[in-house]
Simulated assay, not measured.
Amino acid sequence: MPHCIIEYSATLDGDIFTSKVYQGALDSMLFEPDGSDIKVRALSYNSYIVGGCKTDFVHVTVRILFGRSLLQKTVLSKSIQAKLSELDLVSCSITIEVVDIERSSYLKWLV
Protein backbone atom coordinates (compact mmCIF):
# COMPACT_ATOMS: atom_id res chain seq x y z
CA MET A 1 0.00 0.00 0.00
CA PRO A 2 2.77 2.49 0.48
CA HIS A 3 2.93 5.57 -1.67
CA CYS A 4 6.62 6.41 -1.97
CA ILE A 5 7.13 9.96 -3.22
CA ILE A 6 10.67 10.94 -4.11
CA GLU A 7 11.50 14.63 -4.41
CA TYR A 8 14.96 15.48 -5.69
CA SER A 9 17.06 18.26 -7.19
CA ALA A 10 16.84 18.36 -10.99
CA THR A 11 20.61 18.12 -11.30
CA LEU A 12 20.29 14.44 -10.29
CA ASP A 13 18.99 11.56 -12.42
CA GLY A 14 15.66 10.61 -10.84
CA ASP A 15 15.53 7.21 -12.52
CA ILE A 16 18.24 5.92 -10.19
CA PHE A 17 16.03 6.51 -7.14
CA THR A 18 12.77 4.77 -8.04
CA SER A 19 14.11 1.23 -8.15
CA LYS A 20 16.16 1.74 -4.96
CA VAL A 21 13.17 3.08 -3.01
CA TYR A 22 10.94 0.30 -4.38
CA GLN A 23 13.46 -2.36 -3.35
CA GLY A 24 13.91 -0.78 0.08
CA ALA A 25 10.16 -0.83 0.70
CA LEU A 26 9.99 -4.43 -0.50
CA ASP A 27 12.95 -5.47 1.68
CA SER A 28 11.18 -4.09 4.77
CA MET A 29 8.78 -7.06 4.51
CA LEU A 30 5.88 -4.85 5.63
CA PHE A 31 3.94 -5.11 2.36
CA GLU A 32 2.85 -7.72 -0.17
CA PRO A 33 5.71 -10.20 -0.77
CA ASP A 34 5.53 -9.67 -4.54
CA GLY A 35 5.64 -5.87 -4.17
CA SER A 36 2.39 -5.44 -6.06
CA ASP A 37 1.09 -2.86 -3.57
CA ILE A 38 4.18 -0.61 -3.56
CA LYS A 39 3.79 2.61 -5.56
CA VAL A 40 6.80 4.83 -6.28
CA ARG A 41 6.90 8.17 -8.11
CA ALA A 42 9.49 10.90 -8.39
CA LEU A 43 9.37 14.67 -8.81
CA SER A 44 12.35 16.85 -9.70
CA TYR A 45 12.78 20.45 -8.62
CA ASN A 46 14.67 23.21 -10.41
CA SER A 47 14.06 25.80 -7.69
CA TYR A 48 15.28 24.91 -4.20
CA ILE A 49 17.62 25.96 -1.41
CA VAL A 50 19.17 23.55 1.08
CA GLY A 51 20.89 25.12 4.05
CA GLY A 52 21.12 28.49 2.32
CA CYS A 53 22.66 27.20 -0.92
CA LYS A 54 21.77 25.16 -3.96
CA THR A 55 22.96 21.75 -2.76
CA ASP A 56 21.60 18.52 -4.20
CA PHE A 57 18.89 16.80 -2.18
CA VAL A 58 16.71 13.72 -2.13
CA HIS A 59 13.66 13.53 0.12
CA VAL A 60 11.52 10.39 0.29
CA THR A 61 8.06 10.52 1.82
CA VAL A 62 6.47 7.13 2.41
CA ARG A 63 2.76 7.37 3.08
CA ILE A 64 1.29 4.26 4.74
CA LEU A 65 -2.05 3.43 6.31
CA PHE A 66 -2.26 4.23 10.02
CA GLY A 67 -1.59 1.34 12.36
CA ARG A 68 2.09 0.47 11.96
CA SER A 69 4.28 0.56 15.05
CA LEU A 70 7.19 2.96 15.48
CA LEU A 71 9.53 -0.01 15.10
CA GLN A 72 7.94 -0.98 11.76
CA LYS A 73 8.23 2.61 10.50
CA THR A 74 11.88 2.68 11.55
CA VAL A 75 12.54 -0.62 9.76
CA LEU A 76 10.94 0.84 6.63
CA SER A 77 12.95 4.06 6.63
CA LYS A 78 16.22 2.23 7.39
CA SER A 79 15.53 -0.30 4.64
CA ILE A 80 15.08 2.50 2.12
CA GLN A 81 18.16 4.27 3.50
CA ALA A 82 20.23 1.12 2.98
CA LYS A 83 19.26 0.98 -0.69
CA LEU A 84 19.82 4.71 -1.32
CA SER A 85 23.23 4.51 0.36
CA GLU A 86 24.33 2.13 -2.42
CA LEU A 87 24.29 5.08 -4.81
CA ASP A 88 27.43 7.14 -5.43
CA LEU A 89 25.94 10.48 -4.41
CA VAL A 90 28.29 13.27 -3.37
CA SER A 91 27.39 16.44 -1.45
CA CYS A 92 23.73 15.49 -1.27
CA SER A 93 21.23 15.88 1.57
CA ILE A 94 19.11 12.71 1.83
CA THR A 95 16.06 12.49 4.08
CA ILE A 96 13.30 9.93 4.56
CA GLU A 97 10.02 10.29 6.44
CA VAL A 98 7.21 7.84 7.04
CA VAL A 99 3.78 9.45 7.29
CA ASP A 100 0.51 7.88 8.42
CA ILE A 101 -2.60 8.02 6.26
CA GLU A 102 -5.85 8.05 8.23
CA ARG A 103 -7.84 4.95 7.27
CA SER A 104 -11.20 6.67 7.71
CA SER A 105 -10.50 9.33 5.09
CA TYR A 106 -8.46 7.28 2.60
CA LEU A 107 -10.36 6.20 -0.51
CA LYS A 108 -9.22 3.93 -3.32
CA TRP A 109 -10.97 2.52 -6.35
CA LEU A 110 -9.96 1.05 -9.67
CA VAL A 111 -11.65 2.07 -12.90
Rank of each mutant, 00 (worst) to 15 (best):
K54V: 02
I49L: 15
E86P: 01
S28Q: 06
D13W: 00
A10R: 10
C92S: 01
G67P: 04
V111Y: 14
L70A: 14
K54E: 11
K73D: 09
G14E: 00
D88F: 02
L71W: 00
F66K: 10
L65N: 02
V99C: 08
K20R: 14
C92F: 00
I96Q: 01
S69P: 02
T61C: 13
L70I: 07
N46T: 13
S69H: 05
H59M: 06
L65G: 04
L110P: 00
V62P: 02
H59K: 11
K39D: 00
E97G: 10
V75Q: 07
S9F: 07
K83P: 00
V62N: 03
D34P: 06
Q72C: 02
D27K: 06
E102I: 03
V62E: 01
A10I: 09
L30V: 06
T11L: 09
D27R: 03
S105T: 15
Q81V: 05
T55I: 08
K73S: 06
W109L: 09
A82V: 04
L26E: 07
D15V: 09
S19T: 10
G51Y: 11
Y22D: 04
S79I: 05
C53E: 12
I5V: 15
L30P: 08
V75C: 03
G24S: 06
V111W: 11
Y8H: 13
D34Q: 07
Y8T: 12
S85I: 02
M29N: 15
G35L: 07
V111I: 13
G67Y: 13
L26K: 14
H3I: 04
V111A: 13
S85Q: 14
A82S: 11
F31S: 02
A82M: 04
I96K: 03
Y8L: 14
A25M: 03
T95K: 12
C92L: 03
